[in-house]
């Protein structure tokens, strides 16, 4: 494992825990898209079914279990515990426009036509667009709390670092996985606009708000 990959995983973990803590401490999930969080829970579940079939390392197993557990906890906080604070009126992205095309694509473009491989591929495609309901919500309300911005930034940095990891692996190991790379590129591009706003506004101590 190279440094980019490790820092990418840490950034991903930081994002997930940051969101959990934000909701827990403020006792509120205002401004958070429950739909994006459900999509991420689906992504982790579909991808990490190999927990039951394949042992890779203690690190790998622990991270997968933590990601899944945190993800389901977040969904539970939004739709059950702090349901009264959930901003459903602004969380109106139609997720079927993401789930259906990525599911069809996973059937058509995959490495191997087996159930686990198709589910893995589906999770890669779905992850690349799963943040759209959240970004849509931010654009609809025109603003995001600073801590939500930090969450989005850490989440975007994670896949960006994975891109460097893949360049590294291609160069030093001759390994590449085109499905992951293309989806990872799409995922990173979706964050670019947000990265710009984050760097120009949030890092200068301003709240992220979009021009009306």
């Amino acid at each position: 494992m190279n440094l980019f990959r490790f820092l990418g995983d840490l950034s991903h973990l930081l994002a997930i825990i940051l969101l959990l803590l934000k909701i827990w401490k403020s006792r509120s999930c205002a401004g958070i898209s429950g739909k994006s969080q459900v999509l991420f829970a689906v992504v982790f579940t579909a991808r990490y079914l190999d927990l039951f079939t394949n042992y890779i390392s203690l690190y790998n197993t622990c991270m997968k279990v933590v990601y899944i557990a945190c993800s389901f906890t977040t969904v539970w906080l939004i739709y059950s515990k702090f349901k009264a604070t959930y901003d459903g009126n602004h969380d109106t992205f139609r997720v079927e426009f993401l789930v259906v095309p990525t599911a069809i694509l996973a059937f058509l473009v995959n490495h191997d036509f087996t159930p686990l491989e198709i589910l893995w591929t589906f999770s890669i495609y779905l992850e690349s667009v799963a943040i759209l309901p959240q970004l849509f919500m931010v654009s609809k309300t025109g603003e995001a709390e600073t801590i939500t911005s930090h969450y989005l930034f850490a989440l975007g940095v994670y896949r960006t670092l994975y891109l460097f990891n893949w360049i590294w692996r291609y160069h030093f190991e001759g390994f590449f996985d085109l499905i992951a790379i293309v989806a990872g590129l799409v995922q990173t591009v979706l964050y670019c606009d947000f990265f710009y706003l984050y760097i120009t506004k949030v890092l200068k101590g301003k709240k992220l708000s979009l021009p009306a």
Binding site: R5, M63, K64, H111
Partner: peptide, 10 residues
């Protein structure tokens, strides 16, 4: 190669 391997990435 781009073939299916044990998935060591997260």
């Amino acid at each position: 190669d781009s073939e299916s391997k044990p998935k060591d990435e997260l």
